[in-house]
Design a protein around this nucleic acid. Structure first.
Ligand SMILES: [Mn+2]
Ligand SMILES: [Mn+2]
Ligand SMILES: [Mn+2]
Ligand SMILES: [Mn+2]
Lengths: 231, 231
DNA sequence: AATAATTTTTAGGCTTATCTAAAAATTATT
DNA sequence: AATAATTTTTAGATAAGCCTAAAAATTATT
């Protein structure tokens, strides 16, 4: 098999790649175009910087930009973004599975590794890991064509009392939230049963790994689980 | 064990790191200071760019610069350079040992990976590989303090007829040379016996893995071997 | 519909890392 | 020692990616 170091999809700088990734993520939840301010906030930069970059990316045909109307990725732009996300998530799996990283330690390193240019490298990492389909946070890994298979997931907060489910992913992947879950010994794959929901503040008593635990509604909003099986 | 993402030794850009590494390598063979032109040639840039960067690095105390006199790394500069080389060579071992890369495919990728900032990452890669001491080209891997243990190596071309030795490293790591060695099935660790040296052009008949092979003097100059054991 | 608040863009600057061309210093040759 | 060749530095530009401040457009409120 022949690998080319640079293919048609990777003549982008790390900064351009980060913009594409941010716009991709924001576009999944945006109803219309992704706004300048939203991008600026996500990338911790200024709106004026976003406008500059967005014009450059529009010239490169990876997004459509109309003044004051926000941006939308083109098919090509979506594919490039998905392939960067693929690399990010594969590296996260590698760090956790092979290098003893905890799931709250992988993000910053994956943020760097995702920009390494070498198709063979990521293919081999993929193979070494046994072609995983989800990352350590339960997020799906796009395939080599940038296609993502979505699993049906609901917030734990949507479940009723006595329903039982499995933790599939976390909505918030911040270090703070992940460390909270570590402390409470809550991990992807755990079985969760809703024991009681307090009507006043929606705090919820759950049973996880045979241990009862009280969680706030905010926590329940950030745990993504399998659609309920009433028990 | 606690890992800090940024320590005192890594507030350098990739470009600065590449300069430090180039100067380190050139400094090993230079009698006096490393010249502006030598650095420019090694990094495929212009002498004027080198002068600019060298001034910046002198401000950062990692090298001593005197106009027209070339540069010398400080102790600190040498350590930083050695730690980048450590990362480069560990990644090369990883690519070959774990990801099925051939030794002629690793350089460009390692050139990128060496700039990833994460002390834990490289320590874990080191551990995963079993703390290797040489890279796929036979070059020594600096330890965590940047110290390098040099093995005694001589050019194959210095051996006499009937002397036997072991291939320890290659002097030239260009893809062309490495692919030549692949083709001839010559690899690190092979036993080599000098059968005959032609006085006219110093072409040499050697026995490698029980196969006789004629190599040019230029090849013999680029194979680094154990000091001879006369047989 | 007019006005106010917010968002977005433009204009002008800055830093890093490059470059070319010309000037200055060093080194080699006669 | 003078001159020629080479190396190195300086001066002035350029492009990427960011910034602040001000202007323009859009959206929300009265
Ligand atoms: Mn990134
Ligand atoms: Mn993740
Ligand atoms: Mn490099
Ligand atoms: Mn090497």
């Amino acid at each position: 098999m022949v690998y080319l170091l640079y293919n048609q999809y990777n003549m982008f700088t790390s900064s351009e790649e980060n913009y594409l990734k941010a716009i991709y993520h924001l576009g999944l939840v945006a109803k219309k175009g992704v706004s300048t301010n939203a991008i600026a906030k996500k990338l911790d930069t200024k709106a004026s910087s976003v406008t500059d970059m967005v014009k450059k990316l529009a010239d490169k045909k990876v997004l459509i930009y109309q003044k004051y109307q926000g941006v939308n990725l083109t098919i090509e732009g979506k594919k490039i973004a998905a392939l960067i996300i693929r690399k990010h998530r594969l590296w996260e799996v590698f760090l956790v599975e092979k290098l003893n990283f905890n799931w709250d330690e992988v993000h910053d390193v994956a943020e760097q590794l995702e920009h390494i240019k070498s198709p063979k490298l990521i293919d081999e990492i993929d193979a070494l890991l046994g072609f995983p389909t989800v990352d350590p946070h339960g997020d799906p890994i796009p395939d080599k064509e940038g296609e993502i298979t979505l699993r049906k997931k609901v917030k734990l907060s949507t479940l009723k009392e006595n329903e039982e489910t499995v933790l599939l992913a976390v909505k918030d992947s911040s270090d703070d939230f992940l460390r909270y879950l570590n402390k409470k010994k809550i991990a992807i794959g755990n079985t969760i049963k809703v024991i009681h929901i307090e009507p006043f503040d929606h705090s919820t008593l759950v049973q996880i790994n045979d241990v009862e635990l009280l969680i706030t509604n905010e926590v329940a909003e950030n745990l993504l689980v399998k659609e309920s099986n009433a028990v």
